[in-house]
Amino acid sequence: MAETDDVTDAVRRATQGESSAFSELYRLTRPLVARLVAGFGTLSPDEAEDVLQESYVRAFRGLPQLKSPGAFTPWLLTIARNRARTRLERRSLLQRMEEERVDPTPETVPALPPTLQVERDIEVVRQLIAELPEGEEKKTVQLFYIEGQLSAREIAEQLGVGKSTVTMRLERFRGRIKRELLQRVLAGRWD
């Protein structure tokens, strides 16, 4: 997804202190963040909402450090993923609170590539999904990422599997996509 002009513009205005721009940013990006958090099937709806809110609080607080307005969405998504993971880890008695993940600094999250490149990347991802062997994993990925209507919890119910199973399937697929992207970065096809 390329950063839209609207998001970039709102980020610029927000960093200049225009209060309505925060509202605009929230309105524009909330659906994406909510979908991301919905991928964590073991988070309760209340926890998911808390993660979402906490992510925005942190992102808005850190906004002055964001040097490239075009990097806002991936940065925000990274924060949200970290918050969700931290929330899940806190449940574990073995995990100490002090081990909380640190929010990424904005500079480490470069802007997304141009729209044309993103469109190509989306096609690559679609192709990867199409090439997945028929089965539950492919179905899970299609339901969550392609149809985009059901949360991981709802998918678990529909498929009759555990919530953590759905989350794991999504994570596994995400790992595959990350591998593709990393390879592209290393091959100089993105940065």
Binding site: M1, L32, R35, L36, A71, T73, P74, W75, L76, L77, T78, R81, N82, R85, R101, P104, T108, V109, P110, L112, V118, D121, I122, V125, R126, I129, Y145, I146, E147, G148, Q149, E171, R172, R174, G175, I177, K178, R179, L181, L182, V185
Partner: peptide, 22 residues
């Protein structure tokens, strides 16, 4: 498997890309 659980700057990009599918 490592990338799936490791936090790095690619996370945001990956999520943005995947969430743009729907």
């Amino acid at each position: 498997t490592f990338l799936a659980t490791h936090t790095d700057p690619l996370d945001g990009r990956t999520d943005a890309l995947l969430l743009a599918l729907a």
